[in-house]
């Protein structure tokens, strides 16, 4: 539990640093470290499948994409927006924070086994999926079997994104 709190506080510090830095390459490296700490946190929260997806896709591919984008644009952020603009935006952010925290007051506590989210379809997946699909890892069983169409839709999203990249970045005179 203590290590969770420590990791979460490190995450907040890295996020603030990544927003604050003027050097975009440094931001990208910080974001890679942020994803890595997120992966450690998820291992700690028992979400092992999510942890290795985050470590490979979040920390790996996103950083590569960011560095590729910086290498073809500019490395430094220009001088900041005017002070008045910052104050206005901070007020909007603080108001949204207040709304979220207010909504949180009624939420069940962290780790509560009787929370509605853990009572609806989850028991069925936990108790029946190994008989019904023969897969021991419940996450894989749900991903590939019960919610197979969801995964098909995800593949469609990746395909569409790939087509967008080809259309946006191809050179005309070749």
């Amino acid at each position: 539990m203590a290590i969770d709190i420590l990791l979460l506080l490190i995450l907040v510090i890295i996020a603030i640093a990544a927003i604050h830095m003027k050097d975009l390459l440094a931001c990208g490296v910080l974001l890679g470290g942020y994803s890595l700490i997120m992966a450690v946190l998820w291992t700690n929260l028992n979400a092992v499948d999510v942890a290795f997806t985050e470590a490979s896709v979040g920390a790996g591919i996103t950083t590569v994409l960011l560095i590729a984008a910086i290498s073809r644009t500019k490395r430094r952020e220009d001088d900041p927006s005017p002070f008045r603009h910052k104050v206005q935006m901070s007020i909007i952010v603080l108001a949204s924070t207040a709304v979220f925290v207010f909504a949180l007051l009624d939420a069940p506590n962290f780790g509560d086994p009787n929370a509605p989210a853990n009572q609806h379809v989850a028991p069925r997946y936990i108790h029946e999926s190994s008989h019904e699909t023969g897969v021991l890892n419940m996450v894989t069983a749900v991903l590939a079997s019960y919610r197979g169409y969801d995964t098909l839709g995800e593949t469609t999203v990746i395909f569409t994104a790939g087509m967008c990249l080809v259309m946006l970045l191809r050179r005309k005179n070749e």
């Binding site: 979400a47 896709v57 996103t62 984008a69 419940m138 969801d150 995964t151 569409t160």
Partner: peptide, 28 residues
């Protein structure tokens, strides 16, 4: 632990990388 959020987030991570890639292409 509840496996359902893990499944949803596995899908969401991949979708988030796709949106990031398209956004960077638009920025270029």
């Amino acid at each position: 632990d509840n496996p359902l959020p893990h499944v949803l987030i596995l899908t969401a991570i991949v979708v988030s990388v796709s949106t990031t890639a398209v956004a960077f292409a638009l920025i270029i």
